[in-house]
């Protein structure tokens, strides 16, 4: 109970701090402009020319656009606390390290989900253009929210490893990039000789699990995958911070 209240307090402060600085609005606008432009205008993937009213091109771009948005919004979570010394204040307050980590994680996740929710005009657009399968779209949004959770968890972890926001940004972008690309034909074709390598590499990839959700299949296996990535990264964050302060 006490712990939940602490998590809520940390969560509120962290979420507010996004909107206290202009950066949050910049991220949001860039995210919305990018995803909008890519969905509707990218050559070879255009929503208009396919003649089908769905959001396939929107969801296909989500993992790529997240690569910029998520590391940028998570890079400060711990790096800034460590650089300015507020971590000393935070961790000597009557809370546990776990409360602080979970509160921050949830705040950053909700921030991204707010960005995702603001893409609602694309739903209106496809409904105006035709008669899309709303079940598939709903499923896609659930998948995109879960995927955001994984990116945020990676960003939370890299932010804990350094005092520098720039290093955190580059690290989490790289890790997420590898995790996304691992499931694409780009990488899997490299291992075409060994089927089991493909299986291992692609089951670990964000891409593989996001693909099936996009098709409207909300598989328990995919949900468990996302939740385990988040749990693993949060746990790794705990270990990193616990070790850093004792170093």
């Amino acid at each position: 109970m006490r712990s939940l209240m602490n998590i809520a307090t940390i969560f509120k402060r962290e979420l507010k701090s996004y909107f206290e600085a202009p950066v949050a609005y910049v991220f949001m606008v860039v995210f919305l402009v990018l995803i909008g432009a890519l969905t509707f205008m990218w050559p070879g993937f255009p929503l208009f020319e396919r003649g089908v009213a769905d959001l396939a091109s929107f969801f296909a771009w989500i993992p790529i656009v997240y690569l910029l948005l998520v590391p940028a919004s998570t890079m400060g979570l711990w790096a800034e606390e460590q650089r300015t010394g507020t971590i000393e204040l935070l961790l000597t307050m009557p809370i546990t390290l776990g409360d602080a980590i979970i509160g921050k994680f949830l705040a950053a996740w909700l921030f991204i989900v707010i960005g995702l929710a603001l893409t609602f005009p694309v739903i209106i657009t496809v409904n105006y253009l035709g008669d899309p399968d709303m079940g598939v779209i709903f499923c896609g949004y659930i998948g995109a929210a879960l995927l955001a959770g994984c990116y945020v968890a990676v960003g939370l972890f890299t932010s804990a490893t350094t005092k520098s926001q720039v290093i955190s940004f580059v690290l989490s972008l790289t890790i997420c990039f590898i995790l996304v690309m691992a499931g694409t034909p780009f990488i899997t074709n490299l291992f075409s000789e060994w089927a089991w390598v493909i299986t291992v590499v692609s089951t670990l990839s964000f891409w593989t699990h996001f693909e099936s959700i996009q098709r409207g299949v909300l598989d328990m296996g995919d949900i468990i995958y996302y939740l385990s990535v988040m749990t693993f990264m949060i746990f790794a964050t705990y270990i990193v911070i616990d070790n850093r302060k004792s170093a």
């Binding site: 402060r13 701090s17 206290e20 600085a21 300015t84 010394g85 507020t86 000393e88 204040l89 000597t92």
Partner: peptide, 11 residues
């Protein structure tokens, strides 16, 4: 009160 009085700058 830690050394150098850290506090959340944006608040």
């Amino acid at each position: 009160l830690p050394e150098n009085a850290p506090a959340y700058d944006s608040m």
